[in-house]
Write a protein that binds this DNA or RNA. Structure first.
Lengths: 215, 215
DNA sequence: GTGTGTCAGTTGCAAATGCAACTTTTTAAA
DNA sequence: TTTAAAAAGTTGCATTTGCAACTGACACAC
């Protein structure tokens, strides 16, 4: 399942027309710049470049909520409402961002443009996909032991790839962040699982040896 | 913020027209019955009654993923893809369910009906709201200690209500399920927090005494 | 009244986990 | 090739947490 993109099924010509329709504004940012137009209730579309959504905790920790690549979207609607003030959107590279007002997006378009509804349909897909990813994350985090978190995660990847030997798509440090557990505790648990013959693993390569129907 | 409903801004007359347009099928179920039409890739709309989405773990545990009331929607798009086989939708009461095929929903409507795009727009709102709730849940579950989970949860409710004395909207047993922690461990932690003067609490009534900007 | 069930609250204990402080290996850069 | 910086891997220790097994309060049915 490849992710839906915001301009799927919309031609370049239509995108141009759309800009009028939606009163879309495009702005350029340089690497490292912070995007501030979010308060205004608009939808951001990453036309080119990469941005990151960062949360700053009160104790100074910065958490990467999400990384958004070309054709990705961001906006108030898409992240949590708590801590409204302390979410920042930072450009990792030079970026071109298109802003569309929610008002215009959700109002009935008097031109009855087909690309208008296509865009909303694409947004629906994108948000649904994001929702599913969040559900998966909740499913993992709701496991009460580290081992069960690992097993739930491994099973997920394994099922997705259709293989029992999987490669974790990020570093093990990042995996421990994703699972919200201590890195050393996680590695310790993986070692135990190796010793018990439940898995075989070396760095990011993991082979599932346990009976998956058990979990 | 009150939740969007699927038929917002659509008149009863339009709903009837829509049924033709979408080839919608309405079925009645009795209390306790299981709904099975989900494989077919359709969207379920609860016209009347209450349904519950249940997950059965391999070890026999049943987890309530969601309770859906009148005008709520459910479907493959809206819950996690793992464990596809073992999600059940059960009617808690007598129910009337409208099924709309995703195909018809996502295709361009040749009649260019306005209610068609309104419906998709409403779905977008519903899914976004769900997404935000899931983000909140992830934020809570990603806290590594029981105390931080509680504080994050209390802050969320407090912020929502604009008060420092809050009433937990479900039983404390259910709260421990929501936070994915042991009930007795949670009560023990709340007792400690009382003793340390961080909160005041009696059963479901909690008053926040700590400085919220600290967390 | 008596029984039955749910919810809140408690506590001892063993196990799991986070934290800190390391070493070793791998990767990337100069 | 050398060097520096990440990432992987390890371990001891204190703390947190889950588990199990209780008690007491309240509601509702018979």
């Amino acid at each position: 399942m490849s992710d839906t993109r915001i301009f799927d099924n919309i031609t370049d010509g239509e995108i141009d027309k759309m800009k009028d329709c939606f009163k879309a504004v495009t702005r350029k940012y340089i690497e490292g710049e912070t995007i501030n137009n979010i308060e205004s209730g608009s939808l951001g579309i990453v036309v080119s470049g990469v941005v990151e959504i960062i949360r700053f905790d009160f104790d100074g920790n910065r958490t990467i909520l999400e990384r958004i690549n070309e054709n990705g979207i961001f906006g108030r609607l898409f992240f949590s409402q708590i801590d409204e003030g302390d979410v920042e959107i930072i450009c990792l590279t030079d970026c071109e961002i298109m802003f569309v007002d929610y008002e215009h997006l959700t109002k009935q378009c008097h031109n009855a443009c087909s690309h208008h509804s296509t865009l909303i349909r694409n947004m629906l897909s994108i948000v649904s996909e994001k929702s599913i990813k969040l559900s998966n994350r909740v499913e993992i985090l709701s496991q009460r032991t580290l081992r069960k978190k690992l097993i739930t995660y491994f099973n997920m990847i394994s099922k997705e790839k259709g293989k029992k030997n999987i490669v974790i798509p990020f570093s093990l440090s990042n995996l421990s962040d994703y699972l919200c557990v201590d890195r050393s505790a996680m590695l310790r648990e993986m070692k135990k699982m190796r010793e018990e013959g439940l898995i075989d693993s070396h760095a990011k390569k993991v082979t599932i040896l346990y009976d998956q129907t058990m979990f």
